[in-house]
């Protein structure tokens, strides 16, 4: 074996081991009975329901508003579109604590929009807002890229055949971009599910109203490690399923891109 192969192999193995070990530790340092006991802790049920509800709501908002934006960004070559495309990626690189403070200063009682009588902070709506804020960029990025790959010629053909813009979008562009949109939505959902810092600062930490799964894990870690670990395992499993969807399931589930007749 060459020195090159040996060196690269060792470096690669080291990183794989390092990335895998913490996840393995989550599983091997507990037992099935401990997990079941942990899942019966009082904060688990409300956190599960709340996370399911808020991530569903935030995904719906992201898809409903993000699909038109992604489409416009993919079709426009203007400098404004490029600026918007960059700006909407900001939440990915902004630290979550900064996002939480920014949301509070925008939507809090004494924030920019506070004068309108808006009382969003510390409500379930605040959880959804925080999730939309941090997760929308993932859908936008994947969606814009997927729409860009749609051949303009096909749309022109659809139009010359008499399809109105909305119809050509729905019957031509959307099906072609669907696999990309689905994996974007999955990534976006995963980010929303994991959202922690901004939620803690902007929405607070109240079981049943704003305490999502990550907040419940953080809270339980200091009182009931078993519950924290059980919830962590649930999130790892959810993340793993999502990863499968993104890596293969998305395109496979919705078939290879095809041109409608």
């Amino acid at each position: 074996m060459s020195l090159f192969k040996l060196g690269f192999g060792a470096a690669a193995a080291l990183l794989v081991l390092f990335l895998a070990l913490p996840v393995v530790a989550l599983f091997v340092t507990t037992s099935a009975s401990e997990i079941l006991l942990g899942l019966r802790a009082p904060l688990v049920g409300p956190a599960l329901r709340l996370s399911f509800f808020t991530t569903t709501a935030s995904l719906a908002i992201v898809v409903a508003l993000g699909t038109p934006l992604a489409w416009l960004l993919s079709r426009s070559t203007s400098r404004l579109a490029r600026a918007v495309e960059t700006a909407v990626q900001l939440p990915v690189v902004i630290p979550p604590a900064v996002a939480g403070l920014a949301l509070l200063l925008a939507f809090g009682r004494r924030g920019l929009l506070g004068g309108l009588g808006l009382q969003l902070a510390f409500t379930t709506a605040a959880v959804v807002l925080a999730e939309v804020f941090v997760s929308a960029p993932f859908y936008l990025q994947a969606g814009t890229a997927a729409f860009r790959r749609v051949d303009t010629e096909l749309l022109l053909v659809a139009r010359t055949l008499g399809a109105r813009p909305l119809r050509s979008f729905a019957r031509v562009a959307l099906p072609l971009a669907l696999p990309g949109l689905v994996s974007g939505a999955a990534m976006s959902w995963a980010r929303a599910l994991g959202e922690f810092g901004a939620t803690l600062m902007f929405a607070g930490n109240l079981s049943g109203r704003t305490q999502t799964l990550p907040l419940a894990i953080y809270t339980a870690m200091e009182s009931d490690l078993g519950a924290a670990q059980s919830l962590s395992l649930l999130l790892v499993l959810a993340a793993f399923v999502l990863l499968l969807i993104v890596r293969s399931g998305g395109p496979a589930l919705f078939g290879a891109p095809r041109v409608p007749r």
Partner: peptide, 11 residues
Amino acid sequence: SVEAQVVSREL
């Protein structure tokens, strides 16, 4: 009656 008004339990 107090708990009904609680919006967050901080760490």
